[in-house]
Design a protein around this nucleic acid. Structure first.
Lengths: 200, 200, 200, 200
DNA sequence: CAATAATCGAGACGGTACGTCGCGTCTTGGG
DNA sequence: CCCAAGACGCGACGTACCGTCTCGATTATTG
């Protein structure tokens, strides 16, 4: 999974997988804590308890390191149940709000959003790699809801996707440390779903 | 308006107001371009075409400088016409999307949102000083709309405020350089207002 | 005697002669305390209790100021009695060892000697203006002593001048604060006048 | 020989001895060129072609650096032949007048002499470390000459030492770049050994 | 099992940006 | 017109941190 993917065994002492993991984890921590611009290899190595050369031996620069670190964020996607729109949406929300991993991801999301202007290429990769798959799941949920008649069929999916997710995401950015309260998420849904529900 | 507010005239050469303005403007530019953490007094002075000492003579550190720079962002608030909800909301949107000043403010907004976790105190001041007054205008708009029967009266204003503004604000963060297209803003409004409109 | 010598009266407030004196005196003090290179107009003005512009109005740079300050060091030359070589030499020594003015001059002498390499032009002027007149007095003393038969007539005056004065001057440089003890000066004279070789 | 003398090997990359040498040499050059007060670590680093941190890692301030730099000046002492006073003295003079190293040492000597008042502690160390050993050699030469009957035995060695060396040293200070002409040194010796008084 | 070779943490390297200070110049109000 | 006070742009200072490089020690594979 690292940048210097190797196929054939090389002689000499093999690279420590512990170091790999510690570096990636430190990178993700720091991405969420300080953002892309102030993140430095020095800081990553210190946080990982590893020599700087151990990082540079694997990745040529911080962009490459961040790209590889992001790849580990793809993780297992939430699987919507498909019974009702609201249930599916809450499953997706839940996966972003519970646990240490989710908190770190919220911090990273906020940092990338704040640095879109400085690091457009990295931000694009982050969106494509990490965010887009989740949006794709959500699109499936919305399409299924349209098919079941739970959502209007005269609006494009992208519009509905943004209107449903933006209140949650933007709320989260204002305090990434605290997960969004589930009842508040439900009240957001009440409003937006009302607007998106088919006119009878 | 500078940090070292002086009442009585001091002896010696008075401080240059040109320098004041250049420093504040450079600070706002850089706030939008690089954010809070990487902003440095050195960078501000260089951008302003001013000696570093000229900055340090006025503000003891970058936080104080940023606080004073933010104060100049309050600017004139947009005045809603009060004829219809949609017209008023579009007036408010417009004031954030047109002109160089608005573009700079969008960049600054994105930077502060991305650094809430690192500089909570500064972010809080920014919200209170710059954002909250505009939200207050929007609250007035919403209350008037409730009074006119254009919005449901069973929801609290804060909820409606967030649901209406979040899609616009979050869309903006994904590309602060380009102002939000007015027709897209209208489509967002179509959906959210439908959800917030009173049941007949 | 200042650099901007003026002949005709100019209109407006005349320049303060107090300031002139204070600046020159401060310059001489600092010349002796910090030397030529670290001496700054800022320091002179502060020591003189005068605005910096008041100095710059009179002298264009520190070299010109130092030149004029040195001119005031010429002072009244000691007048040898002409009765005996030893008495005359001790009169000259005395004038360099007694009083505040003499101590300052010793400090200045040490500083210039130490900075000959950095400021050869200033040092040359210093030698010509301040030191050379005193050496000229000493030459007269030596010539008279030769005429009286107190000194050999087969040596040139410059050589004798240097051999007699160097032990005193060099001793002084090793601790300019303390004036050379008169009895030690006498012992130096004993040796140079009589030599170190044993009398047969 | 560096300030942070280490006995046991420390982990990590060892400090470069090339850097040590370059820094010390640059310090000695600058000591002779600009003196103690204007000497700065920045200047030393630039002259040595070394990062400033490389200097500060070894010495905490310029005084400590100068002390260590002076220690390298002790060098090999001249060995007088012991056959005659004049020959021995000229050997000692020679060692201060020939070669690049000697020219640098003359410049340094002049600088320290000129800054005795500003840096008495450093000057004291310089005298003790660098000058005193050479004076001790000269004392041996003088004592041997006294024993051989070449010098009077009724004068103390310190007095003779000063009277013999001062003309040479003080002449040198007036132009440290040019070594003292050997024939002039001989004429100084002629006088001090024989005296200025006429032979009866 | 010894030799080899790549990796490890540690830390020194040259370079650069930081906030501070002091320089010589410039600009006020008041005498 | 002079004077003090002090702000101005500029640049040097000592510090901290960056990415790179280099050391002795460690750890698998190879002969």
């Amino acid at each position: 999974m690292t940048h210097t993917e190797q196929v054939e065994r090389r002689s000499g002492r093999p690279r420590s997988e512990d170091a790999d993991r510690a570096i990636i984890s430190a990178t993700l921590d720091l991405l969420g804590e300080v953002g892309v611009t102030p993140l430095s290899i020095e800081g990553v190595a210190a946080r990982a308890g590893v020599g700087k050369a151990t990082v540079y031996r694997r990745w040529p620069n911080k962009e490459a390191l961040i790209v590889d670190a992001m790849a580990t964020l793809k993780g297992p996607l939430p699987r919507p149940a498909g019974r009702s729109l609201r249930e599916d949406v809450m499953i997706l929300f839940d996966s972003q709000m519970a646990g240490y991993e989710a908190a770190r991801q919220r911090r990273i999301y906020a940092c990338f959003m704040g640095e879109v202007g400085r690091h457009p290429e990295l931000a694009r990769r982050y969106i494509n790699t990490v965010i887009e798959p989740r949006r794709e799941v959500m699109r499936g949920v919305l399409r299924a809801a349209v098919a079941r008649g739970e959502l209007r069929d005269d609006l494009d999916i992208e519009l509905m996707l943004h209107v449903i997710t933006a209140p949650v995401l933007h709320w989260t950015m204002r305090d990434p440390e605290r997960p969004l309260d589930k009842s508040l998420a439900n009240r957001f849904l009440d409003v937006t779903l009302e607007g998106l529900a088919p006119r009878r």
